[in-house]
């Protein structure tokens, strides 16, 4: 399936480049609908990869790349279930999300996240599965999970550790602060910072450059330099579910979800 138009995402294969566009308002929150369509993409990717040398993931929404997991859906669904059932549901959701993200991480082509606006939580984790991150100068990255009593659940810590020094990982995780694209370039995560509104154009130019290389060599290099931390990813799901079962997390999520302030609740 070289083309797909969904409610939350779409993709198109053209000239050896797959462009995966996110477009679920308000800011591509990752909930069950988006996951369903991401699973379609992960399945299609096996065949798409035969014809493509690069994948670009970007957002068509002005608000940003992706604001992370759909916490409202997570909270409201959990409220409708018994505690054990809710934790089982969260675990299954994380397992499915990890399967998709692991497939993109390991895809035999060069993957580029074109990031503008916010890349928070799960949005940051989506960018982290890509081989290269190209960021608009106004992009912001953040792992706010600890501020709600959780850890990132979509592979954030293992993949951040893979790419960055541990002190940077601790800073981002333990403070939960958001940082701009220039900072993320200075620590080595963002490969290119581009002018406002130029992300997709520059991501396409990078994909075109990659297309000049021998594909077999590019795949071999990627397998050599980008190991996937499967064991830690597995452990992350267990820790997330353990933390999710605590009443303080439910209370924090409730405050966040019910907040109507211009600045949402985050301690």
């Amino acid at each position: 399936m070289n083309h797909f138009q969904g409610d939350s995402l779409s993709w198109d294969l053209k000239d050896g480049v797959i462009e995966l566009a996110l477009h679920r308002a308000p800011c591509n929150e990752l909930g069950s609908l988006t996951l369903d369509e991401f699973e379609k993409f992960a399945n299609a990717l096996k065949n798409l990869a035969h014809e493509a040398h690069a994948l670009i993931i970007y957002s068509t929404l002005p608000s940003g790349f992706c604001a992370g997991a759909d916490l409202r859906e997570l909270y409201h669904r959990s409220q409708q279930m018994a505690k054990d059932e809710a934790i089982k549901g969260v675990s299954e959701f994380l397992e499915r999300t990890h399967r998709v993200l692991n497939a993109i991480d390991a895809a035999p082509l060069t993957t580029i996240a074109g990031v503008h606006g916010v890349a928070f939580g799960g949005g940051f984790e989506l960018a982290l599965v890509c081989d290269l991150i190209i960021a608009d100068k106004m992009a912001r990255f953040c792992f706010p999970e600890l501020r709600l009593g959780l850890i990132p659940g979509f592979g954030g810590i293992p993949r951040l550790k893979r790419d960055l020094g541990n002190s940077v990982v601790r800073d981002l995780l333990l403070t939960g602060r958001s940082v701009n694209a220039t900072k993320m370039q200075s620590v080595g995560l963002v490969s290119q910072v581009v002018a406002e509104g130029e992300v997709l154009k520059l991501a396409r130019a990078t994909a075109a450059q990659i297309g000049k290389f021998d594909r077999h060599t590019a795949i071999a290099a990627k397998q050599f330099i980008k190991p996937i931390p499967y064991e830690e990813l597995r452990r992350e799901i267990d820790i997330f579910c353990e933390l999710f079962s605590r009443p303080s997390v439910e209370a924090g999520l409730r405050k966040f979800v019910e907040s109507t302030d211009a600045q949402p609740y985050l301690p």
Binding site: G117, M138, C142, S178, V179, N180, K183, A262, Q263, P264
Partner: peptide, 27 residues
């Protein structure tokens, strides 16, 4: 402005003054 636009303002201020301003300081 809403929360996302506030982050946009924060980023512009960081670029303008060439500083890092943790968003929790703006809570």
């Amino acid at each position: 402005i809403d929360s996302l636009q506030t982050l946009d303002l924060l980023t512009r201020l960081e670029h303008h003054f060439q500083i890092e301003l943790p968003d929790y300081e703006l809570q």
